[in-house]
Deep mutational scan, measured.
Amino acid sequence: GYRKEQERLGIPYDPIQWSTDQVLHWVVWVMKEFSMTDIDLTTLNISGRELCSLNQEDFFQRVPRGEILWSHLELLRKY
């Protein structure tokens, strides 16, 4: 899972600490993992702090059909 990727690349476990690059890395990883092609990366060119401050409605406004990303983010925030 993504935890291995975080360990390998030194990405903080807590998404709130992610840099913009780390947010984009996570988005690309999830897209590959779940064979998603319809995500516009430019809408998530934000820091982890900004990402974690979005509520579900705001998130889906930025990322239509972003349910998998949202669920994955929720999982990461719990651990």
Rank of each mutant, 00 (worst) to 15 (best):
G1V: 07
G1R: 15
G1M: 15
Y2H: 15
R3A: 06
R3F: 11
K4E: 11
K4F: 09
K4W: 09
K4R: 13
E5F: 04
E5N: 01
E5R: 01
Q6I: 15
Q6R: 03
Q6K: 00
Q6P: 02
Q6T: 07
Q6N: 01
E7V: 07
E7F: 06
E7M: 10
E7D: 15
E7P: 01
R8K: 13
R8S: 08
R8V: 08
R8W: 05
R8M: 08
R8T: 09
L9K: 11
L9C: 14
L9I: 10
G10A: 11
G10S: 10
I11P: 01
I11A: 03
I11F: 06
I11Y: 06
I11C: 04
P12N: 04
P12G: 03
P12H: 02
Y13S: 13
Y13C: 08
D14V: 01
D14F: 00
D14M: 02
D14C: 04
P15V: 06
P15H: 02
P15M: 03
P15I: 05
P15Q: 01
I16E: 15
I16Q: 15
I16D: 09
Q17D: 15
Q17G: 10
Q17W: 10
Q17N: 11
W18G: 02
W18L: 00
W18Y: 03
S19Y: 03
S19N: 11
S19G: 05
T20G: 11
T20M: 08
T20W: 04
D21H: 12
D21E: 14
D21W: 07
D21S: 13
Q22K: 02
Q22C: 03
Q22S: 03
V23I: 02
V23D: 01
V23N: 00
V23S: 01
L24V: 13
L24H: 15
L24W: 07
H25D: 07
H25T: 09
H25C: 06
W26I: 02
W26S: 00
W26Q: 01
W26F: 04
V27N: 02
V27G: 12
V27I: 11
V27H: 02
V27L: 07
V27F: 06
V28F: 09
V28N: 10
V28Y: 12
V28P: 01
V28K: 15
V28R: 15
W29T: 04
W29G: 02
W29A: 03
W29P: 00
V30N: 05
V30F: 05
M31H: 08
M31L: 09
M31I: 12
M31S: 09
K32W: 04
K32M: 06
K32V: 05
K32P: 02
K32T: 14
E33P: 06
E33R: 12
E33M: 05
E33F: 04
F34K: 14
F34R: 12
S35N: 14
S35W: 05
S35G: 15
S35V: 08
S35A: 10
S35T: 13
S35M: 08
M36W: 09
M36F: 10
D38N: 10
D38L: 04
D38W: 08
D38G: 12
I39W: 08
I39G: 07
D40E: 09
D40K: 06
D40V: 04
L41N: 06
T42R: 13
T42W: 07
T42C: 12
T42F: 06
T43D: 15
T43Y: 14
T43L: 14
T43H: 08
T43E: 14
L44G: 03
L44K: 01
L44M: 13
L44S: 02
L44I: 08
N45Y: 07
N45F: 05
N45G: 10
N45P: 04
N45H: 14
N45Q: 10
I46S: 00
I46Q: 02
I46G: 02
I46R: 01
I46A: 03
S47P: 12
S47W: 02
S47R: 06
S47I: 06
G48M: 00
G48D: 02
G48W: 01
G48S: 02
G48E: 00
R49P: 14
R49E: 15
R49W: 08
R49Y: 10
R49N: 06
E50W: 03
E50A: 11
E50N: 06
E50D: 12
L51W: 00
L51M: 08
L51P: 02
C52D: 05
C52W: 03
C52H: 03
C52R: 03
C52K: 01
C52M: 11
C52P: 00
S53N: 12
S53Q: 10
S53P: 04
S53W: 04
S53L: 09
L54Y: 06
L54W: 13
L54H: 04
N55M: 05
N55E: 12
N55G: 13
N55D: 14
Q56G: 06
Q56K: 14
Q56C: 08
Q56S: 12
Q56P: 07
E57D: 11
E57Y: 14
E57L: 10
E57S: 12
D58Y: 08
D58V: 10
D58S: 14
F59R: 03
F59T: 00
F59W: 06
F60N: 07
F60H: 09
F60Q: 11
F60V: 15
F60L: 15
F60Y: 11
Q61L: 14
Q61F: 10
Q61C: 10
Q61K: 13
Q61Y: 07
Q61S: 14
R62S: 08
R62L: 14
R62C: 08
R62K: 13
R62G: 04
V63D: 03
V63Q: 06
V63Y: 06
V63K: 01
V63M: 09
P64F: 03
P64G: 08
P64Y: 02
P64S: 06
R65D: 15
R65V: 08
G66L: 02
E67D: 08
E67T: 12
E67A: 13
L69M: 09
L69A: 05
L69E: 01
W70D: 02
W70C: 02
W70Q: 01
H72I: 05
H72T: 04
H72K: 05
L73N: 00
L73S: 01
E74V: 07
E74T: 08
E74C: 08
L75P: 07
L75V: 07
L75G: 09
L75I: 15
L76M: 10
L76S: 03
L76I: 06
L76D: 01
L76F: 05
R77E: 05
R77T: 06
R77N: 09
R77L: 08
R77A: 03
R77H: 11
K78L: 08
K78E: 12
K78G: 15
K78Y: 07
Y79A: 13
Y79F: 15
Y79K: 15
Y79H: 14
